[in-house]
């Protein structure tokens, strides 16, 4: 099964699935960060221009610090997310799934230089297209990986019927299928929702289905409510 995920088994024996982030989202995050840095520096340079030579010296220090440590500081103190990464919903973590630390962040960001070679991040781009985990050279050296942060589904359910327990033990995948059916059926076309519900109709309450063709959908939603617990 092809997928863009990376499986990590934690010492507790739990397997975590992380969705690795690739070139396009990372490039956009980089461009956002670049714009923020340059706009910020341009603003500050306008102010420092009044200070003459001292100001330009100060500005150069600022350029150095911002260009090299903007990503490091954000990654370490902001859960692996620069502003650009945050707006793209991605984050940097260590290969083993732990939060990124100082040394990894510094290594991956210093090696940005290697990714930049020969010009305009040529090596980095090729590396991200070729590597299985979409890593650039800095990521390979630091042992880090950029992943998509999982969004939490907000379930605003206005479904007012009682929950209904399934009479058969369902596997986790089956349970989550029923729950996501209940959550997403509103956004599907009604005919598609009915079509999906009918797949399971032969094993649902036949009498009620005769009375109301929509019954399979309603029953599945009640079951989802029971499985979810609310």
């Amino acid at each position: 099964m092809l997928d863009t995920t990376r499986e990590i088994e934690v010492p507790e024996g739990v397997e975590l699935t992380l969705a690795v982030a690739g070139l396009v989202s990372r490039a956009l995050a980089f461009m956002i960060d670049l714009a923020i840095r340059w706009i910020g520096l341009a603003t500050v340079s306008g102010i420092l221009a009044y200070l003459g030579n001292f100001g330009s010296g100060l500005f150069l220090i600022l350029v150095f610090v911002v260009e090299w440590f903007y990503p490091v500081l954000f990654e370490v103190f902001n859960q692996g997310q620069t502003i650009g990464k945050k707006s793209m919903g991605i984050m940097v973590i260590n290969d083993d799934g732990t939060p990124i630390d100082w040394s990894s962040s510094i290594v991956r960001n210093l090696l940005r230089f290697a990714d930049f070679l020969p010009v305009l991040f040529g090596f980095g781009v090729v590396s991200m297209l070729v590597n299985k985990d979409f890593k650039r050279l800095g990521d390979l050296a630091a042992g880090t990986v950029v992943v998509h942060k999982r969004r939490l589904n907000k379930t605003t359910s206005n479904f007012d019927q009682d929950g209904l327990s399934p009479k058969l033990p369902l596997t986790l995948a089956e349970q989550s299928a029923i729950i996501s059916y209940a959550e997403r059926s509103d956004r599907m076309s009604p005919s598609r929702a009915a079509e999906l519900g009918n797949v399971l109709a032969p094993w649902l309450d036949q009498d009620l289905i005769k009375k109301n063709p929509d019954h399979s959908s309603v029953t599945l939603k009640r079951m989802a409510k029971w499985l979810r617990g609310h």
Binding site: L2, D3, V24
Partner: peptide, 23 residues
């Protein structure tokens, strides 16, 4: 189907395209 079917974010789907080419 030979790829895992799950609802993804748009950016994740683009990444799946990269994996398709790699494979």
């Amino acid at each position: 189907v030979t790829a895992r079917i799950r609802p993804r974010k748009g950016w994740e789907a683009v990444d799946l395209g990269v994996t398709l080419v790699q494979t």
